[in-house]
Design a protein around this nucleic acid. Structure first.
Lengths: 219, 219
DNA sequence: GGGTAAGTGGAGGGGTTTCTCCGTTTAGCT
DNA sequence: AGCTAAACGGAGAAACCCCTCCACTTACCC
């Protein structure tokens, strides 16, 4: 390693930063996550800077645009989602796997006001996440197919119904204020019950063409 | 009628207005409804004034605050909701009545982006709607009780689950952009199926304490 | 310790929004 | 037709927001 005088390990996103700058960067991300969880993504940049104890200029040097701060702040939770999916894909019981993903992601939505907006609406903007998104969609489709083949998930369930359910849960999570966790749990209970395969299936309205991108955020 | 020189009948909300003022008031309300339906309640006042062909000052004279314009603009749809409920209360089949209310209100939500926000969030602000709200809650409770007693609605259904379902549908309506109508129909289909009484009821998470007021809008 | 590039914070430009002030216009009664 | 109170519209004040510029400070290598 001849041309690398730096001796702090180059971590992704904060490589080759001076020690104080790195510290500030971390505090900004922490402050952003806290603020977004409490008040949603509409929190002004200045409020995040104040909470982090830095000036706005410092924030803007690390995160040149508002959207970049948002995507970075939620990268961790996005990874957690991917982990939930991976874990579920290893579960031998397809229905339990399906329930697990839906339940856990819904709980994350309910716990963090800004999560869904960042998760759904900011996805297409940043090309670096395109691969991860595709992988998630593939995994989800696999999960759904397995659950159907096992006879646990109703046959007319569409992959887009996952998005539908997440949007519905988002509406509850953002609308129910203090009760959002309990409300979300109950909605998930209802929805999982109707997703379950039954002998007397009734005709459903056709699925909507929902994509993970092209979704207008709410909240 | 000695002390009433006016000969235009005093209509609610626009009593004793000069002819041109009344005309403008109506055009403002029409413009507001159109704009809110298309773009949600975040549309700036100036855009509504422009669409109505009046100046901002004219708008502000009739509707002293932004919120007052919103409540007035949605008064009609609110009345439509009340009509839907009244109609359902006269239906001899309680389950059909229940489905009808949920389906129709959900369709209204999906058709009009700003509807829910105005409907839920603006309710408590204006005391004049308190009576109407109480009446709606009573009617809804009656509808739910009847449907349960008829053995059509599952026994552990809570009245707050109506709010839960409307919040969920709102999330879909606001998030699914162009597909919101189809998406909403499908969600309603799923939810109604899980609300229906069944022999093999599973334990649900407990209901959340949701009230029609105290709801943070998502919109 | 000293030099220097990297980092910092606050002031403010440019944009949007809600709401107000005030000089001008007009409906409607006589 | 003339008068007057009612209604009008546009400019702009006040409060936000996102983002940038620039004079000052500080970490880090020698």
């Amino acid at each position: 390693m001849p041309a690398q005088p730096s001796h702090n390990p180059p971590q992704p996103g904060s490589a080759a930063l001076r020690a104080d700058a790195r510290e500030n960067r971390d505090r900004i991300l922490r402050a952003a996550r806290e603020a977004y969880a409490l008040h949603g993504i509409d929190v002004p940049i200045s409020a995040i800077a104040r909470r982090a104890g830095v000036g706005v200029a410092t924030l803007y040097r690390r995160f040149p645009t508002r959207a970049s701060l948002i995507t970075e702040a939620f990268a961790e939770q996005l990874a957690e989602c991917a982990g939930v999916l991976d874990e579920a894909l290893e579960d031998p019981d397809p229905w339990r796997a399906f329930c697990s993903v839906f339940t856990k992601v819904s709980a994350m939505q309910a716990a963090d006001r800004g999560f869904t907006h960042a998760f759904l609406a900011r996805f297409p903007d940043d090309a670096s996440y395109a691969g991860e998104r595709d992988r998630a969609e593939e995994g989800l489709a696999l999960l759904v197919r397995r659950a159907k083949e096992a006879g646990a998930l109703r046959p007319d369930f569409d992959v887009s119904d996952v998005v539908l359910a997440l949007l519905a849960n988002n509406g509850v999570a953002n609308g129910a204020q203090a009760e959002s966790a309990a409300a979300s749990r109950r909605l998930v209970g209802y929805l999982l019950e109707s997703f379950r395969a039954r002998p007397d299936v009734k005709q459903l309205p056709p699925p909507a063409r929902l994509e993970l991108d092209r979704l207008g955020g709410a909240g």
